[in-house]
Design a protein around this nucleic acid. Structure first.
Lengths: 118, 118
DNA sequence: CTGAATCCAATAGGATACTG
DNA sequence: CAGTATCCTATTGGATTCAG
Protein backbone atom coordinates (compact mmCIF):
# COMPACT_ATOMS: atom_id res chain seq x y z
CA UNK A 1 0.00 0.00 0.00
CA UNK A 2 1.01 3.55 -0.44
CA UNK A 3 2.29 5.23 2.66
CA UNK A 4 0.07 7.46 4.69
CA UNK A 5 2.76 9.58 6.32
CA UNK A 6 4.45 12.56 4.87
CA UNK A 7 7.78 10.85 4.82
CA UNK A 8 6.62 8.97 1.77
CA UNK A 9 5.11 11.72 -0.27
CA UNK A 10 6.73 12.12 -3.62
CA UNK A 11 6.99 15.31 -5.60
CA UNK A 12 4.03 14.56 -7.78
CA UNK A 13 1.77 13.78 -4.88
CA UNK A 14 2.99 16.88 -3.17
CA UNK A 15 1.90 18.92 -6.16
CA UNK A 16 -1.52 17.33 -6.22
CA UNK A 17 -1.84 17.97 -2.54
CA UNK A 18 -0.74 21.55 -2.86
CA UNK A 19 -3.23 22.17 -5.63
CA UNK A 20 -5.99 20.73 -3.48
CA UNK A 21 -5.07 22.75 -0.42
CA UNK A 22 -4.64 25.90 -2.46
CA UNK A 23 -8.09 25.42 -3.87
CA UNK A 24 -9.57 24.88 -0.44
CA UNK A 25 -7.60 27.80 0.91
CA UNK A 26 -8.48 30.24 -1.81
CA UNK A 27 -10.34 33.26 -0.61
CA UNK A 28 -14.10 32.64 -0.24
CA UNK A 29 -13.92 28.97 -1.16
CA UNK A 30 -14.08 27.69 2.38
CA UNK A 31 -17.06 29.92 3.09
CA UNK A 32 -18.75 28.82 -0.12
CA UNK A 33 -18.26 25.14 0.59
CA UNK A 34 -19.50 25.72 4.11
CA UNK A 35 -22.56 27.51 2.78
CA UNK A 36 -23.25 24.51 0.59
CA UNK A 37 -22.85 22.21 3.56
CA UNK A 38 -25.34 24.33 5.43
CA UNK A 39 -27.92 23.98 2.71
CA UNK A 40 -27.36 26.82 0.27
CA UNK A 41 -28.41 25.89 -3.25
CA UNK A 42 -29.32 28.94 -5.29
CA UNK A 43 -26.85 31.58 -6.38
CA UNK A 44 -28.52 34.16 -4.19
CA UNK A 45 -28.46 31.83 -1.20
CA UNK A 46 -24.72 31.52 -1.48
CA UNK A 47 -24.43 35.26 -1.92
CA UNK A 48 -26.46 35.85 1.23
CA UNK A 49 -24.70 33.16 3.18
CA UNK A 50 -21.15 34.14 2.36
CA UNK A 51 -21.48 37.80 3.29
CA UNK A 52 -19.18 40.25 1.64
CA UNK A 53 -18.54 38.39 -1.59
CA UNK A 54 -19.35 40.10 -4.87
CA UNK A 55 -21.36 38.57 -7.68
CA UNK A 56 -18.30 38.46 -9.83
CA UNK A 57 -16.20 36.49 -7.39
CA UNK A 58 -19.02 34.21 -6.35
CA UNK A 59 -19.62 33.30 -9.97
CA UNK A 60 -15.91 32.79 -10.55
CA UNK A 61 -15.41 30.62 -7.47
CA UNK A 62 -18.50 28.54 -8.26
CA UNK A 63 -17.16 27.92 -11.74
CA UNK A 64 -13.81 26.82 -10.37
CA UNK A 65 -15.34 24.59 -7.76
CA UNK A 66 -17.50 23.07 -10.46
CA UNK A 67 -14.53 22.54 -12.74
CA UNK A 68 -12.75 20.78 -9.89
CA UNK A 69 -15.70 18.57 -9.20
CA UNK A 70 -16.40 19.93 -5.76
CA UNK A 71 -19.74 21.48 -6.56
CA UNK A 72 -22.32 20.41 -9.13
CA UNK A 73 -24.40 22.79 -11.20
CA UNK A 74 -27.90 21.74 -12.17
CA UNK A 75 -30.18 23.63 -14.49
CA UNK A 76 -33.89 23.02 -14.30
CA UNK A 77 -35.78 24.37 -17.33
CA UNK A 78 -38.47 26.22 -15.45
CA UNK A 79 -39.30 29.81 -16.29
CA UNK A 80 -37.05 31.35 -15.53
CA UNK A 81 -34.54 28.55 -15.30
CA UNK A 82 -33.72 27.35 -11.83
CA UNK A 83 -30.05 26.87 -11.19
CA UNK A 84 -28.88 24.85 -8.25
CA UNK A 85 -25.39 24.40 -6.91
CA UNK A 86 -24.86 21.38 -4.70
CA UNK A 87 -21.67 20.04 -3.18
CA UNK A 88 -20.59 16.79 -4.84
CA UNK A 89 -19.55 13.71 -2.91
CA UNK A 90 -15.98 14.85 -3.29
CA UNK A 91 -16.86 18.27 -2.01
CA UNK A 92 -18.72 16.86 0.94
CA UNK A 93 -15.80 14.64 1.81
CA UNK A 94 -13.43 17.56 1.63
CA UNK A 95 -15.63 19.56 3.94
CA UNK A 96 -15.75 16.68 6.37
CA UNK A 97 -11.96 16.43 6.32
CA UNK A 98 -11.70 20.11 7.10
CA UNK A 99 -13.69 19.83 10.31
CA UNK A 100 -10.60 19.12 12.41
CA UNK A 101 -9.06 22.25 10.92
CA UNK A 102 -12.00 24.25 12.19
CA UNK A 103 -11.34 23.02 15.69
CA UNK A 104 -7.65 23.70 15.30
CA UNK A 105 -8.28 27.27 14.21
CA UNK A 106 -10.74 27.74 17.05
CA UNK A 107 -8.17 26.72 19.61
CA UNK A 108 -5.66 29.12 18.15
CA UNK A 109 -8.20 31.90 18.12
CA UNK A 110 -8.97 31.21 21.75
CA UNK A 111 -5.32 31.38 22.70
CA UNK A 112 -4.70 34.56 20.70
CA UNK A 113 -7.99 36.44 21.13
CA UNK A 114 -6.82 39.27 18.85
CA UNK A 115 -3.66 41.15 18.25
CA UNK A 116 -2.90 41.68 21.92
CA UNK A 117 -3.51 45.34 22.76
CA UNK A 118 0.09 46.53 23.00
CA UNK B 1 -19.41 22.34 24.44
CA UNK B 2 -19.05 24.17 21.24
CA UNK B 3 -20.44 22.40 18.23
CA UNK B 4 -18.19 20.44 15.96
CA UNK B 5 -20.22 20.60 12.81
CA UNK B 6 -20.30 23.35 10.26
CA UNK B 7 -23.92 24.06 10.90
CA UNK B 8 -22.86 25.87 14.04
CA UNK B 9 -19.98 27.91 12.75
CA UNK B 10 -20.54 31.60 13.25
CA UNK B 11 -19.14 34.34 11.09
CA UNK B 12 -16.20 35.05 13.31
CA UNK B 13 -15.17 31.43 13.48
CA UNK B 14 -15.61 31.21 9.78
CA UNK B 15 -13.13 34.03 9.36
CA UNK B 16 -10.62 32.39 11.67
CA UNK B 17 -11.03 29.18 9.80
CA UNK B 18 -10.64 30.84 6.46
CA UNK B 19 -7.47 32.58 7.59
CA UNK B 20 -6.06 29.27 8.74
CA UNK B 21 -6.94 27.45 5.57
CA UNK B 22 -5.64 30.28 3.44
CA UNK B 23 -2.37 30.16 5.28
CA UNK B 24 -2.11 26.42 4.83
CA UNK B 25 -3.17 26.71 1.23
CA UNK B 26 -0.83 29.49 0.29
CA UNK B 27 1.60 28.60 -2.39
CA UNK B 28 4.68 26.76 -1.05
CA UNK B 29 3.47 26.65 2.54
CA UNK B 30 2.26 23.09 2.42
CA UNK B 31 5.53 21.99 0.88
CA UNK B 32 7.50 23.95 3.46
CA UNK B 33 5.57 22.50 6.38
CA UNK B 34 5.97 19.06 4.87
CA UNK B 35 9.69 19.63 4.50
CA UNK B 36 9.84 20.55 8.18
CA UNK B 37 7.90 17.42 9.05
CA UNK B 38 10.42 15.42 7.07
CA UNK B 39 13.31 16.82 9.02
CA UNK B 40 14.42 19.96 7.23
CA UNK B 41 15.94 22.49 9.61
CA UNK B 42 18.36 24.82 7.83
CA UNK B 43 17.32 27.35 5.24
CA UNK B 44 19.20 25.46 2.54
CA UNK B 45 17.56 22.20 3.52
CA UNK B 46 14.13 23.71 2.98
CA UNK B 47 15.30 25.20 -0.28
CA UNK B 48 16.51 21.82 -1.46
CA UNK B 49 13.49 19.99 -0.16
CA UNK B 50 10.86 22.26 -1.61
CA UNK B 51 12.19 22.29 -5.16
CA UNK B 52 11.43 25.25 -7.31
CA UNK B 53 11.03 27.87 -4.63
CA UNK B 54 13.18 30.99 -4.78
CA UNK B 55 15.17 32.38 -1.89
CA UNK B 56 12.94 35.38 -1.70
CA UNK B 57 9.74 33.42 -1.36
CA UNK B 58 11.21 30.86 0.98
CA UNK B 59 12.36 33.63 3.28
CA UNK B 60 9.00 35.36 3.03
CA UNK B 61 6.99 32.21 3.72
CA UNK B 62 9.22 31.25 6.64
CA UNK B 63 8.71 34.68 8.16
CA UNK B 64 4.96 34.37 7.78
CA UNK B 65 4.87 30.89 9.23
CA UNK B 66 6.98 32.12 12.10
CA UNK B 67 4.69 35.09 12.69
CA UNK B 68 1.75 32.69 12.75
CA UNK B 69 3.45 30.44 15.23
CA UNK B 70 3.68 27.46 12.91
CA UNK B 71 7.45 27.42 12.66
CA UNK B 72 10.05 28.50 15.17
CA UNK B 73 13.29 30.23 14.31
CA UNK B 74 16.36 29.57 16.44
CA UNK B 75 19.65 31.35 16.08
CA UNK B 76 22.75 29.71 17.46
CA UNK B 77 25.69 32.10 17.76
CA UNK B 78 28.29 30.00 16.03
CA UNK B 79 30.45 31.47 13.31
CA UNK B 80 28.75 32.00 11.10
CA UNK B 81 25.47 31.90 12.97
CA UNK B 82 23.47 28.73 12.61
CA UNK B 83 19.81 29.32 11.96
CA UNK B 84 17.31 26.56 12.45
CA UNK B 85 13.65 26.47 11.52
CA UNK B 86 11.55 23.89 13.29
CA UNK B 87 7.82 23.31 13.18
CA UNK B 88 6.12 24.31 16.42
CA UNK B 89 3.63 22.11 18.21
CA UNK B 90 0.90 24.02 16.46
CA UNK B 91 2.58 23.51 13.13
CA UNK B 92 3.00 19.81 13.74
CA UNK B 93 -0.64 19.47 14.70
CA UNK B 94 -1.69 21.26 11.57
CA UNK B 95 0.43 18.94 9.48
CA UNK B 96 -1.11 15.97 11.20
CA UNK B 97 -4.57 17.28 10.45
CA UNK B 98 -3.69 17.64 6.81
CA UNK B 99 -2.82 13.99 6.39
CA UNK B 100 -6.38 13.03 5.46
CA UNK B 101 -6.28 15.75 2.85
CA UNK B 102 -3.22 14.17 1.33
CA UNK B 103 -5.11 10.91 0.95
CA UNK B 104 -8.10 12.75 -0.45
CA UNK B 105 -5.99 14.49 -3.06
CA UNK B 106 -4.31 11.21 -3.94
CA UNK B 107 -7.63 9.54 -4.63
CA UNK B 108 -8.67 12.39 -6.85
CA UNK B 109 -5.39 12.29 -8.69
CA UNK B 110 -5.86 8.57 -9.23
CA UNK B 111 -9.32 9.08 -10.63
CA UNK B 112 -8.22 11.94 -12.90
CA UNK B 113 -4.73 10.86 -13.96
CA UNK B 114 -4.05 14.12 -15.80
CA UNK B 115 -5.90 16.40 -18.05
CA UNK B 116 -7.19 13.66 -20.32
CA UNK B 117 -5.32 13.88 -23.63
CA UNK B 118 -7.99 15.51 -25.74
C1' DC C 1 25.11 30.30 4.39
C1' DT C 2 21.12 33.28 5.03
C1' DG C 3 18.85 36.19 3.55
C1' DA C 4 17.43 41.51 1.88
C1' DA C 5 16.67 44.71 -2.24
C1' DT C 6 15.02 45.65 -6.53
C1' DC C 7 12.40 45.09 -10.67
C1' DC C 8 8.81 43.13 -13.23
C1' DA C 9 4.85 40.34 -14.94
C1' DA C 10 0.82 38.03 -13.79
C1' DT C 11 -3.03 37.25 -11.02
C1' DA C 12 -6.48 38.20 -7.60
C1' DG C 13 -9.84 40.74 -5.88
C1' DG C 14 -13.16 44.73 -5.23
C1' DA C 15 -16.75 48.20 -7.12
C1' DT C 16 -20.00 49.24 -10.26
C1' DA C 17 -23.03 48.93 -14.02
C1' DC C 18 -25.46 46.23 -17.17
C1' DT C 19 -28.15 42.08 -19.40
C1' DG C 20 -31.21 37.79 -20.67
C1' DC D 1 -32.74 35.60 -10.57
C1' DA D 2 -28.16 34.70 -12.22
C1' DG D 3 -24.88 36.14 -13.82
C1' DT D 4 -21.29 39.36 -17.40
C1' DA D 5 -18.46 43.23 -18.61
C1' DT D 6 -15.40 46.68 -17.44
C1' DC D 7 -12.14 49.07 -14.78
C1' DC D 8 -8.79 49.61 -11.47
C1' DT D 9 -5.72 48.58 -7.54
C1' DA D 10 -3.30 45.52 -4.50
C1' DT D 11 -0.99 41.45 -3.91
C1' DT D 12 1.80 37.59 -5.59
C1' DG D 13 5.31 35.46 -7.15
C1' DG D 14 9.59 34.91 -10.07
C1' DA D 15 14.46 36.32 -11.46
C1' DT D 16 18.37 38.46 -10.39
C1' DT D 17 21.60 40.93 -7.78
C1' DC D 18 23.73 42.33 -3.56
C1' DA D 19 25.18 41.91 1.43
C1' DG D 20 26.23 40.55 6.46
Amino acid sequence: MRGTSFEHINDDECRQFQAAVELAGRKWNAAILLAGARGARRFSEYRDSVDGISDRLLAARLRELEADGLIGRDVTPTTPVTISYTPTDDGRRLIALMRPLVLWSRERADRAPKAQSA
